[in-house]
Design a protein around this nucleic acid. Sequence first.
DNA 1: ATAATCATGTAATCAGTTACATGATTTT
DNA 2: AAAATCATGTAACTGATTACATGATTAT
Lengths: 202, 202
Amino acid sequence: MSELTDLEGAALAEIHRSGPTTSYAVAKAFANSPSEFWSGSAGAVYPLIERLRSRRLLRATRGKDGARVRTDYSLTASGRAALRAWLLDARRAAGIGFDPLRTRVIHLDQVSARQRDAFLAQVRVHLQQAAAQEVWPDSPRMQAIHASVMAARMSWLAAIEALLLAGQPAPRRAAKPAARRADARGGGAGGAGGRAPRKRAR
Amino acid sequence: MSELTDLEGAALAEIHRSGPTTSYAVAKAFANSPSEFWSGSAGAVYPLIERLRSRRLLRATRGKDGARVRTDYSLTASGRAALRAWLLDARRAAGIGFDPLRTRVIHLDQVSARQRDAFLAQVRVHLQQAAAQEVWPDSPRMQAIHASVMAARMSWLAAIEALLLAGQPAPRRAAKPAARRADARGGGAGGAGGRAPRKRAR
DNA sequence: ATAATCATGTAATCAGTTACATGATTTT
DNA sequence: AAAATCATGTAACTGATTACATGATTAT
């Protein structure tokens, strides 16, 4: 009865989506997903599916395909209920999760402005490549969601660049008037005017 | 010599930021972070710090504070190098990581439009609350980054709502004009015109 | 006096990882 | 014939989790 983990929820959703399927197919689905977070290894997926079956959220039907055996799984009624509860859990959905870019950006004041800017430029290139990639050629819907995720990350990156530039110790030479424009982003990055002397991390 | 995990990198960054500190303080920092992803439990952090020390990325200085002992850690030269390598790893930074909202949105076609819309509305409320929260009262810089993260998530949410609405089977009754407002986002949710017949899950 | 916080750890457990093993089937 | 893919698992390991234990110090 306890709550599903996110991997369990995602696995249920995957099985629910593609009818009765094998653990192998579920593992593949995770392995092919653009997120690097779950490897989709057999060592993770087979025990996971068995766990869900033993909790009566999945039903197994053993069949054979010539001499080859296969076990197909589908959701039971409680499986569907559990899936819905996991899927529609807005509180959990609103969490931050783990974002490798955010975890780094938070600490970007520890490197020089030069290194920081080079880093952000590289990230942008990687994001653009990822956005352009066809990760779900068979599902335009998922592909569109993927594209929107990457687009959102890129515009967040732009916001971050603006933010970090604003909190900068002021460039040393010449100092052209610096155009302190009124910050026309959509999101609005809250308070934090650009004071506070920056540590010049090595 | 092997690459730092993200938790290791974040721990190094935290120690580098706040001078020589204790494992306890590092754990606190993770526990107080707005991300729910790392619990900041002693069981995770103490062994982690000890691991980093045994790899000579941290240097320990045992001191006493009255009768109370404490171990302060600071980065060695190789520690700083490792931190920089982790922090500026653009490839890893550009990954998707784990996003609890994304993992659910991908499967949102498995519930009714009503449930889906209610869910997204709830998520929006949670995001707004999270955005308004003061998570780093002592660091306006980090607070600003946090606000920008949440703002980015909210505008992504708007993009998703538009996307899912576009791929809808057309509303059945009356249809009041629906105020299709011009969507002033920055991000732009890329291609994906709204065809493709939707499965009506459950 | 009591409760909260600082500080350091350990034990049991859980859920993932990589890597391996086996064998059938399909593609090149 | 060889290589790739389908399919099912297991073993050793790693790195988290919760929960507990201990004791000093500080705030109420």
